[in-house]
Design a protein around this nucleic acid. Structure first.
Lengths: 220, 220
DNA sequence: GGAATACATGAGGCACCCCTCCGGTTCCAT
DNA sequence: ATGGAACCGGAGGGGTGCCTCATGTATTCC
């Protein structure tokens, strides 16, 4: 809906091209959501009732299609994130942020993958990922400065939670679609400042984190 | 080593067959460890310097090869588990069990997958998985009865940790090979009785858990 | 040493997937 | 209404993987 308006404004497209473009995005949304970011492009084209060559004409790379398909879910996520920042209680804000994040992962396998990985070849997705990292940093720091979140954790630990949750969702989305929520609240108990116990390993550095997110693209 | 002795005793094999059998298992160990349980069988055969038909002759299904290849790592894991049961302090035992478990996952991508999934078609692996579930149940219950582990958690929650850790390892094994340990100790803080806050979702049932572990075979 | 048997080989069928390229089609402006 | 630009289709080349089976080879035992 918002997509077609924006896109239509962008260029004076032929009407048939516009129609196929829209159908491709719809099919991509379904397939990515159901099968993750590695979904078959040929299948998406088939699903959209369009030839594979046409898909490549509209979206030269997988990431182009990905970005177009995730737009609405990304907006939804960012709105929730903004709300978290505005909450009075820093801990409540942190909890709200995490629940919003985990829910976004749970709703869409593609978006789940998207949040877990990075795609160095795409400046557009890199920008989005940087933004999310900054959000996490901010919401966590605020909760720490209020004395509610334990001070010995870092952004990398939250990314670890994203990976954890991503896998939980892969396992449970069919069988126990709300299981992620239990896991989240259990994890939150680990992040509270009260009675925290020391951790015998340092958090990952920013480089390690980045490389690890890229690594997930290679893991089958 | 222990494998070849056992196998040699099992049947009066031709010497060349024995040699190829051993080479296949070695190659399988390497490949499963590096690429997970979905590693290419053709590649394993190539790696072993053997034709694909020969692989299938020795191991009619992938699971047959898997079981043969994981034998030593499974033994290692079970020994650690036994030690955990024998520790005096129930909480120490729980921690030791979890660290042993996570370390086993970290050391071998195939074993990592193996612990996260179930394979309904193989009675042999089902037996192993049942055994692990019982161990978890025992070591957790003991820590709970001693008042050290929070009483509102269940075996399913530990399996969630297995999934979480499995994904963390996929992400970090190349980049930050000890990251899983930090995550574990953070998680342990969530399991302590003293820190517990209520959780707004029930644990997964046994059926849900089983189905979820099977589901992971289908997720790409 | 030779026959019988156990074993190994690898081409080949099938099913996916990625991506390109060019002949044919559709649309729109004139 | 028609020419030319924009667009589309889909065959095809290259790759991976699973698994089978007819054919050829090695070993063992007499």
């Amino acid at each position: 809906m918002s997509t077609s308006e924006v896109e239509r404004a962008r260029a004076p497209w032929r009407r048939d091209a516009q129609k196929r473009h829209d159908r491709l995005i719809e099919a991509a949304r379904r397939e990515f959501a159901a099968r993750g970011v590695d979904a078959s492009l040929e299948r998406i084209a088939r699903e959209a009732g369009v030839a594979i060559g046409t898909l490549y004409r509209h979206f030269p790379t997988r990431l182009d299609l990905l970005v177009a398909a995730f737009e609405p879910r990304l907006q939804e996520f960012l709105e929730g994130a903004e709300k978290a920042m505005e909450m009075d209680d820093p801990w409540e804000g942190f909890v709200y942020y995490m629940e919003n994040l985990f829910r976004a992962q749970a709703g869409d396998r593609g978006f789940n993958d998207f949040l877990s990985r990075r795609f160095p070849s795409s400046p557009e997705t890199e920008r989005i990922h940087d933004q999310v990292c900054h959000q996490i940093e901010a919401v966590l720091t605020r909760a720490q400065e209020a004395g509610k979140a334990r001070p010995d954790i870092a952004m990398a630990d939250i990314v670890n939670l994203i990976w954890s949750n991503g896998r939980m969702i892969d396992a449970t989305s069919v069988t126990a679609p709300n299981a992620w929520r239990r896991h989240l609240y259990l994890m939150l108990d680990a992040y509270r400042a009260e009675r925290a116990h020391p951790i015998p390993e340092a958090p990952m550095t920013d480089e390690q984190l980045y490389d690890a997110m890229v690594q997930l693209n290679k893991v089958d």
